[in-house]
């Protein structure tokens, strides 16, 4: 896991493998192990300055740096896409500091660092999904005191979480929270699944892959081990449901996927396409076509 791959010329000689020094990686791995042992529990860790600003995924980058080895194959996505600025810059960062192979194909990756999406292609055992988390504390909206939220977690006082959902229904007639939708992990800790759309919440439930969450600015790490129960909070008369789209992807014709709205001109033209670019490209290569396929 740790040795510098000296044979690879792409590695910058003055940096340790994966940028972080070995003691820091060790510290992060200890936090990760604790997080995996206590699913959904937020483990404090000594987040480092990374060569990018807080808010650009420093938590996820540190987690990835701590777990990546020379044999890994990395995929980085931002809102499901492999080709946006954040995804490209993080992918290049790891290409330069580790020399590992990168890929855009979900099925070929051993580590997938993500900002806000879980790929449409089902993950398999052995894969690791690393989330970049801005606000790890699901109770923060209603309780600003850290001492109090820790006590609430310790004593399982989660009634206030439903106050947020109640407020949603009172205001909008339905639970209007569409992202960062709170979940209960393994019947114990209420956890913020980072700002993933709630569309992806069911994918967290009993997922064969290991899910790791890193919040750099807030200095917290938490984890959902493989095959863990992840239940989205709801009311008996307002059950949890995911977003539904009234049309398929305009490029690949996929249904039951999360779509992005793309504005195509200034006269109201728009199209809805897969947010997961890898999934969309693969389907198009297989011959599926939507109504606006090129």
């Amino acid at each position: 896991m740790s040795a510098l791959d000296a044979g690879n010329e792409q590695v910058i000689a003055t940096y340790n493998f994966a940028y972080l020094d070995e003691q820091t990686k060790r510290m992060i791995r200890r936090a990760l192990l604790k997080g995996i042992a206590v699913p959904g529990y937020q483990v404090p860790f000594a987040s480092r300055e990374m060569p990018m600003p807080y808010g650009w995924g420093t938590g996820g980058v540190q987690v990835t740096a701590a777990i990546i080895g020379p044999d890994d194959r990395l995929k980085v996505i931002d809102q499901g896409a492999d080709d946006t600025t954040n995804a490209i810059s993080i992918r290049k960062f790891f290409e330069r500091t580790t020399g590992v192979e990168t890929t855009t194909a979900t099925a070929e990756a051993s580590i997938i660092q993500t900002r806000h999406r879980i790929p449409e292609t089902p993950l398999t055992a052995g894969q690791i999904l690393v989330f970049q988390v801005p606000i790890p504390e699901p109770l923060r909206f209603l309780e600003p005191r850290e001492t109090e939220t820790r006590t609430m977690h310790a004593l399982e006082e989660y009634g206030v979480m439903h106050v947020k959902l109640y407020e949603d229904i009172a205001r909008h007639g339905h639970i209007a929270t569409t992202y960062a939708y709170p979940v209960k992990v393994e019947g114990r800790y209420v956890t913020d699944p980072s700002p993933t759309p709630k569309f992806d919440n069911p994918k967290m439930h009993r997922n064969p892959a290991l899910q790791l969450f890193g919040a750099g600015r807030e200095m917290r790490i938490y984890a959902i081990p493989p095959w863990t129960e992840v239940v989205s909070l709801d009311f008996e008369d307002h059950p949890f449901e995911v977003q539904a789209f009234d049309r398929p992807c305009a490029l690949c014709g996929a249904e039951d996927v999360f779509l992005d709205e793309v504005i195509t001109d200034d006269r109201g033209g728009r199209m809805f396409v897969c947010s997961d670019t890898d999934h969309c490209n693969r389907r198009q290569a297989e011959g599926h076509a939507g109504e606006q396929a090129a």
């Binding site: 009634g159 106050v163 109640y166 009172a170």
Partner: peptide
């Protein structure tokens, strides 16, 4: 709780003791 509605303020204790039926 000044940032949630009156109804949520009254309902909070009910939710805290496990009531999960919005109506």
């Amino acid at each position: 709780r000044m940032n949630v509605s009156a109804g949520a303020n009254v309902g909070e204790r009910l939710m805290a003791v496990g009531q999960r039926h919005y109506g």
